[in-house]
């Protein structure tokens, strides 16, 4: 399942969400598709990287590095 169902992506793109949330969901879905394809059980690092990057863009985190 290397690609995500187009219906899910278009629902996110057309939804009334902040751009960072749209980007977050799209990026995480790609990771999920990769997990399904590779049967890769580890996801935390990829999730952490994306969440921190986008949360920072959103102007939420002044000092996101922990």
């Amino acid at each position: 399942m290397s690609s995500v169902n187009k219906k899910i992506i278009s629902q996110i793109e057309n939804g009334n969400y902040a751009p960072e949330i749209k980007e977050l969901l799209t990026d995480l879905l790609k990771i999920e598709a990769k997990i399904a394809e590779d049967k890769k059980p580890r996801y935390a690092e990829d999730y952490d990287r994306i969440i921190k990057k986008l949360a920072k863009n959103r102007g939420y985190t002044e000092e996101a590095e922990m």
Partner: peptide
């Protein structure tokens, strides 16, 4: 603050994903 905001960001993401 950063931890609170990361949590909030996740919450917003979860809510949006559930809606989708």
């Amino acid at each position: 603050n950063s931890l609170v905001n990361l949590r909030r960001f996740c919450e917003d993401g979860i809510r949006a994903a559930e809606e989708v």
